[in-house]
Every structure is written in structure tokens, then in C-alpha cells.
């Protein structure tokens, strides 16, 4: 996570806050559901735990139109280059949430087939633990990311 210095001066900081506010209020996620966590991600977007109240019910298939990538599920060795390619196609500002134990650390599958943690491939902003994390945990992670973007902790 690069720590660049943000804009200074009264007018620019207000503008910066406003921009950060708009970025958090309609963060569109790229569909990167891989395994079990993807089902929980879909359940988070569904009726009972509604992501639409955060402006996030839209999951864009094209990475060019998304600014958040929720890596939901285990990333195998064959999938890692694809993951990197999709991440590279997203335009700035972009954030990554690593959802679930397998994406964060390789989970219970400490073996030859999985990348032990998605942060070996892409820079991650928020790690959401769980196997799979329930919709409430994922929403907690998303809100935490929104707080960090709002407060300027993550500067893009």
C-alpha cells in the first residue's frame, strides 16, 4: 500500500473528501467469484443481506468497469495469471478485498495446488476471514474499506 502524500490546502482537501465520498458510495465490484465464497458473495448481494443499500448491487463482468475486486475463493496456480491479468485491466482507483481464508492465506489447503494467499499476486487492501465468511462479515469488510477510503488512509 503506497503512502503518497495527499493534496494540501483547504479547497483541495474538501474536494478530496468529496471525491473519496463518491468513490465509496458506488464501488462496483468485478465478478471474481471462484469457489464457495462466491456463493456467499452472491448471498450478500441478494435480498436478505442487501448490498444495494451501499450502492454495490451491481457486479460488473468487465474489469474495465469495476473498481473493486473481491477475490472470493481459492486461487489455484492455473488461475493466478488470470487473476493478475484481470487486476491489471481494472483502471485506477482500484481496491482488492481478499474474501475468505483461502484467498487470504491459502486456507486449509496448504498444498501444491493453491497460491498461499492472494497477496502474492495482487496487492490486497482488506482481508476478510471466514470459511466462508458470512454475508455480515463480508459487509463488515466492505464497510471497513469504505471507511479507509473516506478517511484517506488508502490513497490512490
Amino acid at each position: 500500500m503506497a503512502h503518497q502524500s495527499g493534496p494540501s490546502g483547504f479547497l483541495l482537501t474538501t474536494l478530496n473528501s468529496a471525491v473519496n465520498w463518491t468513490r465509496t458510495r458506488s464501488m462496483w465490484a468485478a465478478t471474481f467469484g471462484l469457489a464457495c465464497c462466491a456463493i456467499e458473495m452472491m448471498a450478500t448481494g441478494a435480498a436478505h443481506n442487501d448490498l444495494a443499500r451501499f450502492g454495490m448491487e451491481v457486479f460488473r463482468a468487465s474489469p474495465r468497469q469495476a473498481d473493486l475486486m473481491i477475490v472470493a475463493g481459492r486461487v489455484s496456480q492455473k488461475m493466478a495469471p488470470v487473476l493478475r491479468q484481470v487486476y491489471d485491466q481494472m483502471s485506477e482507483p482500484k481496491w482488492v478485498i481478499s474474501m475468505g481464508a483461502c484467498a487470504s492465506t491459502g486456507g486449509m489447503f496448504n498444498n501444491y495446488a493453491l497460491v498461499q494467499g492472494v497477496d502474492e499476486v495482487v496487492p490486497v487492501d482488506i482481508y476478510v476471514p471466514g470459511c466462508p465468511p458470512g454475508p455480515q462479515s463480508l459487509m463488515n469488510g466492505i464497510l471497513m474499506l469504505q471507511d479507509k477510503v473516506m478517511s484517506g488512509e488508502i490513497v490512490r
Binding site: 489455484s76 492455473k78 488470470v82 489447503f109 498444498n111 501444491y112 495446488a113 493453491l114
Partner: peptide, 11 residues
């Protein structure tokens, strides 16, 4: 296929 191979049989 193989993009989700987790080596479960080895595990």
C-alpha cells in the same frame, strides 16, 4: 478446466 484445482485428494 483446472482453474480451481485445490489438490483436495492429496490433502
Amino acid at each position: 478446466i483446472g482453474y480451481l484445482h485445490t489438490g483436495m485428494e492429496k490433502t
